[in-house]
Design a protein around this nucleic acid. Sequence first.
RNA 1: GCGCCCGUAGCUCAGCUGGAUAGAGCGUUUGGCUACGAACCAAAAGGUCGCAUGUUCGAAUCAUGCCGGGCGCACCA
Length: 647
Amino acid sequence: MFHVLESRIQSAFSDYLKVRYGLDITVVTEQPKQSSFGEIALPIAFQLARELKKAPRVIAQEIIDGVGEIPGVGAMEIAGNGYINVRYDRGAYARMLLEGASHATAARAGKVIVEHTNINPNKAAHIGHLRNAVLGDTFCRLLRAAGYPVEVQNYIDNTGVQVADVVVAFHFLEKKSLDEVKALIAGPRFDYVCWDLYARISSYYKDDPESKKWRAETLHAIEAGHGELSDMGHLVADAIVECHLATMRRLDITYDVLPRESEILHLKFWAQAFEQLKERKAIYFETEGKNKGCWVMPGAAFNDDAEQEDSKVIVRSNGTVTYVGKDIAYQMWKFGLLGKDFFYRILKTYADGHQIWVSTTASDQTAPPFGSASQVFNVIDSRQSYLQDVVVAGLRQLGYNEQADKSIHFSYEMVALSPRTCVELGIELSEEDKKRPYVEVSGRKGLGVKADDLIDKLIETALKEVESRHPESPAEERREVAEQIARGALRYFLLKFTRNTVIAFDFQEALSFTGESGPYVQYAAMRPRKILSKLGERGEALPDFATVLTAEALNRQLIQEDFWQLLLAASKTGATVEKAVNSGEPAHVARYAFQLAQEFSNFYQAHPVLHEEDAEKRALLLWLTKFFGDQLDATLALLGIPSPRYM
RNA sequence: GCGCCCGUAGCUCAGCUGGAUAGAGCGUUUGGCUACGAACCAAAAGGUCGCAUGUUCGAAUCAUGCCGGGCGCACCA
């Protein structure tokens, strides 16, 4: 609601400036430094001072006098050297909130695709993958809240080197047959088995470089798509994808469609893209130098200043296509530029009816129309920004400038480990590493925190707390609450950092349920519900707010500053979502949730709602309680965090 | 060597489309459960915003240069 009034003020000002001074400028608004200055501050007079050659205060006065009445605005005043501070009409504003004035966000046209998770299906997910998935999933929720139709994709590289390596380990190292691998898949934690195996084969390659020929052989078989090695590749990849889906499900993360690399190959997506790239001279055949015999994209295409920047190989001299090439084809498909589509089948249907589709080479199932988006967000680690630049350059070279502009690398920094956590995990550190603020994880070495281990640990920690506080509750229910708290703790922990901050993962910090944490917010969100249910237990009903709390009554009550500030804070959800979507920063919403929780905890402490005797004030307190509870729950939902019924 | 990111309180981080007295959490010290549950609240201490120059009425925020740290720059993904 806050931003509705804010934009109303902005347009009133800009209309006036146009008429009065003939100026067409965008009016910026800010939050005043101190709440006592009002709700909105406009530094517009400073902006105009030079142009109009007048003192800012004089200009500010002219504007205030001229701009006239703005519905919902109570007063405007000049402050400091020429700030214009705007105060809302408290009663009118509260009344708008009370009536639930339609701030229903308008649906926006143009599908947005968000691609996230994208874990190589060859081992268990780790903490870094969780950051990717939680960021991507939360951003999807925010986009939907802002009115965008969203399609969630999780790309599966099921024919790549990493899958091949695990197949090599099973087949050549462990001499396992297909049936033996199937037995392992049926057993517990197949993704953990592969995690160790992947580390083993990686070090084996190092000790015995000759063994790399196994990889080449396996990769070739997988790409050709037949034979035992290929079958095993599919078996492993499909099983690991199931593990990943289950892990993500624990955090309430799901997908619409899983496009797989095997279909990109077999449905000849690349061949189609290759023709376009050649035809439009986006790539050329190199006849000399180190890249002789390859199709390459000139360095100038993706790097404007460096002349000596190396070209990027797209097709190798042996005729196979690189990952970047395949990614260009995939990116073209996302925008509907390829002239080809996958076939699809339903991979699974969840209890709530949500279906996950997966690409396939032939199908008689009718799938929703996937792809053909007008905007694409690729949630990918910042370490891959160079390659993402090449992909976008590919679109541009093909003449798809509009799509290139709408192709966004939603990058984030890695999750490393704090030295203390390394020690806990039994990872040996060099003296040099011990002094560093963080240590990078390595899948190849098998170093890292597995996602499921972390979630288990969080649940265990939460369960202890819940058990000590609610010994009388059924065990099953306590478990459910503990799971919700764990989910809240983890998602909040991963979201509270802005994207370009390296997270030095630390168990102690992640397991903390106090201070700026998910459980703190969940705890605060539980309190309004508790108050309202206590009211019911006393046999009292909620007053009819709409009749008791007239604009006059609200004005009387909201003179009290902390009530007004509280209400104001809780009305900024929409503004926060908008800001987070525009800046691509889910952390803004996480911080907002924490702020709301703080405000309410404060209120809770200061005003015993049910003990209030003055009827009008009591009605206000109850309404604030109700309103806050709803806003807290809604904000948590935006973050994918559940609100436990008790804690 | 080139490119991208980071440097703000003891620690971990917000704030960066320039704007009023630079903010949180943790930790430290102190106080608050006979209240709608203390996973809470209140208070205190704690800052050359890496350094320098510039632009500006005004810089943590923009520009340039330096210093320190991280990550990229494969016919791997």
